[in-house]
Amino acid sequence: MKEMLLVRYGEIGLKGKNIRSFEKKLVSNIRKAVASFPDAVVLDKHGRVVVEYEPHNQDAIIEAVTNVFGVVSVSPAVRMDRDIENLKVECLKLMQRLMEEQDIKTFKVETRRADKSYPLKTPEINQIVGAHLYKNLQPIKVDVNNPDIMLTMEIRNVAYVFSKKIPALGGMPYGSAGKGMLLLSGGIDSPVAGYLMAKRGLELEAVHFHSYPFTSERAMEKVIDLAAKLTKYTGNIKIHSVNILEIQKSINEHCPSEESTILARSFMMKIAEKLALKYNCKGLVTGENLGQVASQTIEGMNATNSMIEMPVFRPLIAYDKVEIINLAKKLDTFETSILPFEDCCTVFLPDRVVTKPRLEKIQASMDLLQVDELIEAAITSRDTIIISKGEVLKRS
């Protein structure tokens, strides 16, 4: 017997002729996730992904693999020769070990015969192995409806035997859906939005807008901390830190104050699009939520959308705040997000914000500004931070 982890995927299996490319991406991501374990080996063959490891690393390996997008569940398993006499002997040894570790009074044997050329049918395998266990493990009983333990044998070119299934994140392999630019603020919503799009296979790069020195360095560190938490699922993230203070000053000087929020947002979208094109991103990702704040109306989103050509993904658009907070707590980003450090949206905040902006008025206000020059200056002076597996790898 050899111990290992069986890895299962879900949606990938529906990809038809493209399935192999998704499988390869998933296997590559699993290899990255367990790279810190020198003895871990990821095998991809015979329609099954398997991770071999040293037994003392089992818990850490399980945590790493279940946090890989695309994995729906895993099972600690043993690999055995599939000869029926060997299965009887080795399954008995496995059950005896499991009974030492936990209180087991009832069991059931289940077989999945992936290799249909195996000489015995599924009911025969169940009966032969089950009878052998029942005979040698008295007073344990058989319970086909609600057993304490389900011993499952998966028959391929070898036999994989396991007794539990551990749920994972699901979704699609990270990076399998292309690349997007996340507008990452220090708030609750945008990290959750990034997570949800990453779960759908979108590789993330990020842009953060600040108004230093009106906003503090601690506010920037807060954003870095949020991105670091996302790298638990993405591996690494590059953040472009863009100062928009001069843009905000220009808006404040030349444009109606009630439009300042939507105009600043329009500049953010334009800058994010330029960076996205530069770094091969195919869309933008925001944490916008319909009706949550004054600028997040249909009219407001239509105004900012009109400023760019790139698609904008808003995965939180129909979530209520409680749902978003619950997700943030699950991701361990909530407590960081609510730290009381100001962001650029609080700078020059008007007493009244237009909630239903008219496109022609917003465009007329934009025409009062040196848009291209302001954008180019902001992008040129940006800082870049690369975060890998929770740690800042590079700042420039």
Rank of each mutant, 00 (worst) to 15 (best):
K238Y: 02
R97P: 00
T152L: 13
K165T: 15
L183K: 01
F162W: 13
A206T: 01
M197G: 01
E100G: 09
P173Q: 09
K108N: 11
D189R: 01
M220K: 15
K121Q: 13
V158M: 10
V207A: 11
K121L: 13
M150W: 04
Q102V: 00
K135R: 13
G194S: 02
L137P: 04
R113E: 03
T122P: 00
G194E: 06
L230T: 00
Q127A: 15
F162L: 12
P123F: 06
E154M: 13
T122L: 02
Y134R: 12
I104Y: 01
I125C: 09
K199S: 12
A131P: 01
F214Q: 15
E101A: 15
H240N: 15
I239M: 10
L183Y: 03
G235E: 01
V207H: 10
A131D: 15
D148L: 08
M220G: 11
L169N: 03
M153C: 08
G178S: 10
I188E: 05
L137R: 01
S163G: 06
K105G: 11
Y174F: 14
V109C: 09
D148A: 05
I140Y: 04
D115R: 14
K105C: 04
V129A: 08
G235L: 03
Y174R: 11
A193M: 09
E110L: 14
M99Y: 03
L230I: 04
A114Y: 11
R200A: 09
A168Y: 06
V144W: 01
K222A: 09
D189W: 00
D143L: 08
L151Y: 08
G175N: 11
P191S: 02
T106L: 07
K229C: 02
T231K: 08
G201T: 06
N136A: 01
K108M: 12
L133S: 03
M153Y: 05
E101M: 12
V161A: 08
K232M: 06
D143M: 10
K165W: 00
I104S: 05
K229L: 13
K165G: 00
H208E: 05
H132K: 13
S163L: 04
E203F: 10
H210G: 03
F107I: 12
E154F: 01
G201R: 12
G186V: 02
N136M: 08
E101H: 05
A206S: 13
L151T: 08
E100L: 15
E154K: 09
L183M: 15
